[in-house]
Amino acid sequence: MFATSPAESVHALDLAALRVPSITFWAARSHEGALLGCGALKQHDDALGELKSMRTASAARGHGVASAVLLEIIAECRRRGIREVKLETGTEEYFAPARRLYERHGFTPCAPFAEYTEDPNSAYYGLRLEYITG
């Protein structure tokens, strides 16, 4: 991320930050064990989850890895009863495929949330999860 965004606009989690109880991490691997992609969920509270650390190996891009990881994280949010999933991603052209991925899966632009603030290098998205009651 530091190669594509100004340091003050990088919100990626390092390894220590991924090891806290509020973070759940997923890794997608090939049959041979090669890492294809990953993603994480940061649960802010009972109602809000944040998508973090979505990455796809360059050799795996275009094969549905990111969608598979994203759909699994959304499914986990539903299992937990989380009402909304939000995320921050970059505004640079490098992040255009990520923005398209999120939009294809129903995420829409939103205001900064949690500890985020307005930043010309950040785009914020949210997805409201619907539940059938009764």
Results as ranks from 00 to 15, higher is better:
A114S: 15
C77D: 08
F107K: 03
L87W: 00
Q43D: 12
L101W: 01
P109R: 13
A59C: 13
A28I: 05
A66S: 03
G106R: 02
G49T: 09
R29C: 14
E93G: 10
G49A: 10
P97F: 06
A66F: 05
S67R: 09
G62C: 07
L35N: 02
K86L: 09
I73L: 04
L41R: 05
C38M: 14
E76W: 04
G49W: 01
R29V: 15
S67I: 07
Y102D: 03
I74G: 02
P97R: 03
A47H: 14
A75L: 04
V85L: 06
G39E: 09
R55S: 09
A96T: 11
V69Y: 04
I74T: 06
C38Q: 12
I73E: 03
A59E: 15
R99P: 04
A28M: 13
R79M: 07
G106W: 01
R99E: 04
R55W: 14
E93L: 12
H63V: 10
Y102Q: 07
G64C: 06
R55M: 12
A98Y: 06
A40F: 06
D46W: 11
A114E: 12
A114F: 13
S53T: 11
A47M: 13
T91W: 01
P109Y: 11
C77N: 00
H44T: 13
E118Y: 05
D45H: 10
V69L: 02
R100E: 08
C110N: 07
E84P: 07
